[in-house]
Simulated assay, not measured.
Amino acid sequence: MKLIAKSSLTLFVAMMTGCFSDTPNERFLDYQERIANIQQSELIAAPVLELVELPAKRQLTKEIPRTTLGLVDSYQLRKCNLFGLIAERNSVLGKVQDQFRNFDYQLQLIDGLERCLTSNQIEPELKESLQTILDVKYQHLPDYFFNLIYTSDAMRLQLSGSDWIVKRDASSALQIREPLEAFNAVAKFIATSERGTLSRPPLLTDYQEILEKQNVIGRLAFSLEASERWLQTVTEQLNQYDNSIPCGKNRDMSRFNYLVNVFNNVFVKEVQPYLSYLDSEYQALSAQTLFVSALLQTRDDNGYDLEARHLAFKQANRAHVDYWKGLFKRCGRDLSSVVSR
């Protein structure tokens, strides 16, 4: 607990127009310190900011049964151009494919099986076996997709976060828009009951590198959660020492006026723009990341819910603004324009 000395109040007023740090964490801390300085109160402990990370791979991995086809039957697949794909998959390198290449193989295999089933060069008995394999592949395609998202190194890096997302010239969400559109196309393909009527979705390996290098979703999740905790801390600071701000007739309103300056120059001009930026980044990503939480709805113990984090963030923002509205009302000042919630 840090005690704010009374003598520092004058210094605070002199520095009221000073610049904030560009680091969101320091920005929130500076905001809280300015408030505590005016309150001449102890500084409530800063929130503990936790990493956003997925459970271990072994906790998430879904087991999928293997499908096999006899060697003689496999050779028949040359007639419908599927033998080469299967042979490559069964090679030494093919057996150690990562999750991205394995998932793309499953899509290509499904496409090839559909093609072979319509070929008049494939014997009826073999078609029966191929149909059985195809049914199994369709049945477990959601599991392959689940494993890709939650156990591949690239997507685990994308969904994990330990750093603040910061405003740049262009939206961070735009950096991974194309990969997410590809993932949504796959999700749509999986969800429809008439897959044969849809064109095969895009292969995802092409987007592996950008998802690995451009961490957006995880940093946004971290920033939403961290901002929520900081807002709760600063709101607690305001509420706990609210009685240190006197208001009313024949009362010294200096501290209230200092807080008004903090509200206008710090919250409205510095903090709220960052909160609005986070909200806009979430809105840009939310429509493109529905597949992330949707796949985990059946795994309650391992939920990764960006929407829930955003809701908690909004509630903390609302509670914080409500304090300011109450303070202005108590002190007889008109808060004509409250920051949008």
Score class of each variant (00 low, 15 high):
M1F: 12
L3F: 14
I4W: 07
S7R: 12
S7L: 14
V13T: 11
A14N: 10
M16I: 12
D22E: 11
T23L: 14
N25Y: 10
E26W: 11
R27H: 08
D30T: 13
N37Q: 14
A46C: 09
L51A: 12
L54Q: 01
P55E: 05
A56M: 10
Q59C: 12
L60F: 05
T61Y: 14
T67V: 13
L69M: 02
S74E: 11
L77D: 02
L82T: 00
I86H: 04
G94F: 04
V96Q: 10
I110R: 06
G112N: 02
L113N: 00
R115A: 14
E123K: 13
I133N: 01
V136G: 06
P142K: 02
Y144N: 02
T151N: 01
D153R: 12
A154R: 00
R156W: 05
L159P: 00
D163T: 15
W164H: 02
S171G: 06
A173M: 06
A173E: 01
L174G: 08
I176P: 04
A185Q: 06
V186E: 00
F189C: 03
I190V: 05
T192C: 08
S193D: 13
T197N: 13
Y207D: 03
K213A: 05
K213E: 03
N215C: 11
V216F: 01
R219I: 06
A221H: 04
S223W: 06
S227M: 08
L231T: 01
L231H: 01
T233Q: 06
E236P: 07
S244N: 15
P246G: 06
R255N: 06
F256M: 04
N264Q: 15
N265T: 10
V268R: 09
Y274A: 00
S280I: 09
E281H: 09
E281N: 07
Y282S: 00
Y282K: 03
L285C: 06
S286F: 11
Q288N: 15
F291K: 05
T298N: 12
G303E: 14
Y304N: 07
L306T: 02
H310G: 04
L311V: 15
K314S: 06
A316V: 03
R318L: 15
W324P: 03
G326L: 11
G326D: 09
C331N: 04
V338A: 15
